[in-house]
Simulated scan of single mutants.
Amino acid sequence: MTQQRVAIVTGASRGIGRAIATKLAATGAAVVVGYSGNEASAAEVVGEITAAGGQAVAYGADVADEKAVAAMFDRAEQAYGGVDVVVNSAGVMILSTIAELDLDDLDRMHRVNIRGSFVVAREAARRLRPGGSFVTLSTSQVGIQSPTYAPYAASKGAVEAMTLVLARELRGRDVTVNAVAPGPTATDLFLDGKDQATIDHLAKLPPLERLGRPADIAEVVAFLAGPSGHWVNGQVIRANGGII
Rank of each mutant, 00 (worst) to 15 (best):
N178G: 03
Y80T: 11
T176N: 12
L224C: 03
I98C: 13
A51S: 08
D200E: 15
A161N: 08
E100W: 00
Y152S: 12
L128S: 13
V86E: 00
F73R: 07
S89E: 08
I94Y: 06
M93K: 05
T136C: 06
V120Q: 11
A25L: 01
V32N: 06
G242Q: 09
L202M: 13
S133N: 08
I114N: 07
V45F: 05
R122F: 10
F73N: 06
I237V: 15
S36I: 02
Y80Q: 11
G34R: 04
N88I: 03
V86G: 00
V159K: 01
G37H: 11
W231F: 15
G91A: 13
G37Y: 01
A218V: 05
K204M: 08
N38M: 01
S133K: 04
A70Y: 00
P182E: 09
G47I: 13
R115S: 09
N38Q: 11
E44L: 07
V159F: 04
T148Y: 02
G53V: 10
V46K: 01
V177Y: 03
D174G: 03
E77G: 04
P151Q: 09
R18S: 09
T10G: 12
D174L: 06
P207I: 03
I114W: 01
A222C: 03
V57D: 11
P130D: 05
S146Q: 06
P206Y: 03
A40Q: 15
A124H: 09
I8P: 02
Y80A: 14
V6S: 07
T22E: 08
A30T: 01
A30S: 13
T187H: 04
S146D: 06
R108E: 11
L95I: 06
L106Y: 13
D102F: 00
F118R: 14
T176E: 12
V177W: 00
A40E: 15
F223I: 03
T148C: 03
D200F: 13
F223K: 02
R168L: 14
V165N: 07
S89A: 15
E160Y: 10
I20F: 00
R122T: 13
E48R: 09
V112T: 15
V120M: 11
A26Y: 00
G34S: 09
V85C: 02
S36Q: 12
R111A: 08
F190A: 14
A19V: 05
G53A: 07
A124G: 08
L202I: 02
R127H: 12
L106G: 05
V45S: 03
A51G: 03
E48A: 15
P151N: 08
A43P: 13
N88A: 13
V180N: 02
R126Y: 07
A64S: 15
A203G: 15
P130Q: 08
P214T: 05
H110M: 09
G157K: 07
I144K: 11
